Amino acid sequence: MDYQIKGTTMQSLHITLNQNESIYSETGALLYMTPAIEMETNFSGGLGGMFKRAITGNSLALNNFKATHGTGEVSFSTRMPGHILPIQLDDDIFVQRHSFLCAENSVNLTVVGNLGMTGFFGGNGLIYNKLTGHGTAFISVDGEAIETTLRPNETYLVHPGHLAAYDSNVDFELHRLKGFKNMVFGGDGIFLAKLTGPGKIWLHTLSLHGLAEVLIPFVDRGK
């Protein structure tokens, strides 16, 4: 498998697959594919898996793309202005539900679910997918990407809406904001994600929750 990432603020991912190589993605991410590629939609995990994906806001199914007639190309695009990052899995990675784009079939994708009550108090919530196995996965980071390696015992307090992914070595806790005014009128929810190293984290500068707040007045005005 070879790949190329094109573009600046609205990037696209172009993957060349050799005969019998395959890759899978969330539904709705396809930009184009060549005739050598065949797509098959699969309901991973059966009925229980579909239900879990539905209630956590993920797509019900996953699309698998396989080069069945020689070498072919398949391309994916982001849904938001941002960047596509390749991640070579050495450790398990937790990826925010909107950030997963696609992965090799040697990488397993499972829905972790909602961490505590953060989904209610943390802006657009902390519903994560877990990537395990060995291979390459691609994530979509909204806005600009901030990749940081935390040193042992180094801690970041991150707004949940800006946490794209973190590896399994990072210790994750919920950190409640102090002060009534901060929690009610601060506009950043009640909880922050407390991330303690060692390990790597990926942040995005554009928050879906923040974007929605900016657009709501214009949507209401249009109605």
Rank of each mutant, 00 (worst) to 15 (best):
L85G: 01
L85E: 09
L85R: 08
L85Q: 11
L85Y: 03
L85K: 11
P86G: 06
P86A: 05
P86D: 05
P86W: 01
I87W: 05
I87L: 15
I87A: 04
Q88R: 13
L89V: 09
L89W: 06
D90H: 15
D90K: 15
D90Y: 05
D90G: 13
D90R: 11
D90W: 00
D91E: 14
D91M: 04
D91F: 02
D91Y: 04
D92N: 15
D92P: 00
I93K: 00
F94R: 03
F94H: 07
F94Q: 01
F94L: 13
F94A: 03
F94E: 00
F94K: 02
V95F: 05
V95G: 03
Q96G: 06
Q96A: 11
Q96D: 13
Q96R: 08
Q96W: 07
Q96F: 07
Q96C: 01
Q96L: 06
R97D: 00
R97T: 05
R97M: 03
R97A: 04
H98F: 10
H98W: 12
H98A: 13
H98T: 15
H98P: 00
H98G: 14
S99T: 09
S99H: 02
S99Y: 02
S99N: 09
F100C: 05
F100V: 04
F100G: 02
F100Q: 03
L101F: 03
L101S: 03
L101A: 06
C102E: 06
C102S: 12
C102P: 03
C102M: 09
C102L: 08
A103C: 15
A103D: 10
A103N: 10
E104Y: 07
E104K: 09
E104Q: 14
E104F: 04
N105E: 13
N105Y: 03
S106K: 12
S106Y: 05
S106D: 12
S106H: 06
V107A: 10
V107W: 10
V107S: 11
V107N: 09
V107H: 10
N108H: 14
N108Y: 04
N108M: 11
N108D: 15
L109P: 01
L109N: 05
L109R: 06
L109V: 12
L109H: 04
L109C: 07
T110D: 11
T110E: 08
V111G: 02
V111K: 01
V111E: 06
V111H: 03
V112S: 08
V112N: 07
V112C: 03
V112A: 11
G113F: 08
G113Y: 07
G113D: 09
G113I: 04
N114Y: 07
N114H: 09
N114G: 14
N114K: 14
N114L: 05
L115E: 10
L115H: 12
L115A: 10
L115C: 05
G116D: 08
G116V: 08
G116Y: 07
M117C: 09
M117E: 11
M117D: 12
M117H: 11
M117S: 14
